[in-house]
Design a protein around this nucleic acid. Structure first.
Lengths: 201, 201, 201, 201
DNA sequence: CATGAATGAGCCTTCATTCAT
DNA sequence: AATGAATGAAGGCTCATTCAT
């Protein structure tokens, strides 16, 4: 028990250090030695837990995605109200990056720069989220007898794109935006558009 | 004249080759030698035109952005109709990446992976587009006496984020989407939202 | 007693494992960890019995040579007939390598690849065999009033060289040669040469 | 012309340095950096001429074998007298190793310790020599209506084994033997054996 | 001007050895 | 006594950059 716990704890420390370094430097410039130093261990130790640098990167990014996605899924799963669902996703995303600031750069700007396999894997992950979201949107449209004719997958893409853009702005931008208000405003745009409704009628 | 023209032409060839290689491989994996070979010149010659690899990258990406942005600006500048403006931007972006497919990967996925300075520069470029767009949106809202209260900068971010997401999907996704329809659908979402308008009334 | 017996048994297991691994991989490519695994013990334990990898190698190869040489000596010691003595040596060598196939590669191809000290030690061991053999040959020549004038040390070298070559061929060659016939043929060559004796007369 | 000559000259310098270092240290302990230093060039330069350390080793040992074997073949090819042929081989071998002392250790003790491919290649080379020699011996036996019944391949193996043993002794032994006498004595043993011919009659 | 052969700093990875348990 | 997790020195190889031609 104790030993496997210790190993798990050390593996976790390495993954944290890896996230920090990879996020700051990008995959290719990150040095295994730096990761080791930040994890407080020897260089060789990393290779007891991960086959090589690439494997370490993959495990790290997979862990982050797993945590993030699983959490999103469970929170949304049984939610029938689209607005609430999107709000939850948005808020959770903000929170997640706020509490993992050190890897924000990685997630937003640098994820797929290792090789084609990892790029493909990331693409597949993203596809899953899009599909999941599109399905919720579709359900919403159907259940509301919605007279508007929109492609739910397209909407999902737009929504996630907008979300990513706002994340980047919030994280790297000079004007820090309050996340609560941001969420509401963004959802308002998506639900009602920017068109002057009074004119529309 | 002739000499400086020749020089300019060679410089241009190097930049094209750099765009192709950096886009395919990413900054750190791209080899100066490959760029030289594709440009049809000797390896050392690159260093007669650019201080080093980093500088070459910067010049290349700057050139692309300059071309792209200038084109956008001039096309939109005197456009008063927001919908038309956004449509133009969207269509031009699609066309641009279609005709520069070899650097699409670079522009969408890999731009800021060199160092913090370049990341900051890119961020500033993006900021300019956002500001420009926000200004147009603001003008539209004001001139229409719009009763809806939205943050034009926020809308600009969302719009560009969505645009980027659709670009990525169109470029790397399995289902190639027709760009004309895509544009219309996307703008429809942004203008009227996804809410059931019949219910809304 | 019991403890020292146990220790001896473990030491022996390590030496056997070392012989197997060193023979298969060669000194530098052999991994201490593999030896430990094959010996069924922990990696650190090896260092309780041997100072380091080099020492382990030395002890192992010394043990093999000791067993081999002692056996040869005792079998030949009181043999007065040279032909019988050479036959015994040849047959015993074949048998020894047949029953230690796993270290044949080591003994034939890889022994002295560690450092100069070990190479010198091996050279000295070989010298002993040569001297021993030369002495027997000398005795034979003297006692037979042999009219042929040959350098017994030279003959010893030639005989052992030929023996080694045949061992290598038998072990790694495609045509497995029957050892009994081989011995007779080889001794025949050494005793009577390849010259046409009928012509000679 | 000039350039390719210079390249050839440098390649040759690298191969010489490689022979010296590999011979002294063995493949695995030899450092590429040492080879470069001895060749008087930078470490990276070696990789302009050879794919990697293994390839360098292979090219070096192949070159040595090619030079050696080709020379032997051409000298022996049209020789009908077996004794002269064997004498030529023996003398040439002595001369070759005398003039390439620095790689003697490599050729005698360490050649096949890199990997199985190279070991197999070396084995094949040796096989060629054996076959070549066996063929000459066979021709000799046939043409002389030799009444002695010996396996020419076996004789070839024995001869080469004895030759190798004498080479090793001459190179590493304390008593330097004069090569001219050595050759005669050795051939005498092979042709007439050590048996007392007066007794034989 | 243009070149590409040469360089060597830099980094990933291995593995003999140690030492806390 | 025995272990095996941890270490870090060492070495193969790459590639941006230089400079002699």
């Amino acid at each position: 028990m104790k030993i496997s716990e210790k190993k798990e704890e050390k593996r976790s420390r390495i993954l944290d250090a890896a996230a920090a370094v990879f996020s700051k430097e990008g995959y290719h410039q990150a040095k295994v030695e730096d990761i080791a130093r930040i994890a407080g261990i020897g260089k060789g130790t990393i290779y007891l837990y991960f086959k090589n640098k690439r494997h370490l990167y993959y495990c790290m990014i997979k862990e982050i995605y797993d945590i993030f996605l699983e959490s999103i899924y469970t929170q949304i799963e049984c939610e029938n109200d689209l607005k609430k669902a999107l709000k939850t996703i948005t808020e959770y995303t903000f929170d997640f990056l706020d509490s993992h600031k050190e890897m924000a750069n990685l997630l937003i700007n640098r994820p797929g720069t290792v090789d084609e396999d990892i790029q493909a894997w990331l693409f597949a992950q993203k596809q899953k989220i899009v599909d999941f979201l599109a399905q919720i949107i579709k359900k919403y449209a159907d259940s509301n007898n919605c007279d508007r004719d929109f492609d739910s997958t397209l909407v999902a893409h737009c929504f996630l794109g907008a979300l990513a853009a706002l994340m980047a702005e919030r994280l790297f931008g000079y004007n820090k935006i309050d996340s609560a208000k941001l969420t509401d405003k963004m959802l308002d745009i998506f639900f009602h558009g920017i068109h002057n409704s009074s004119v529309q009628v």
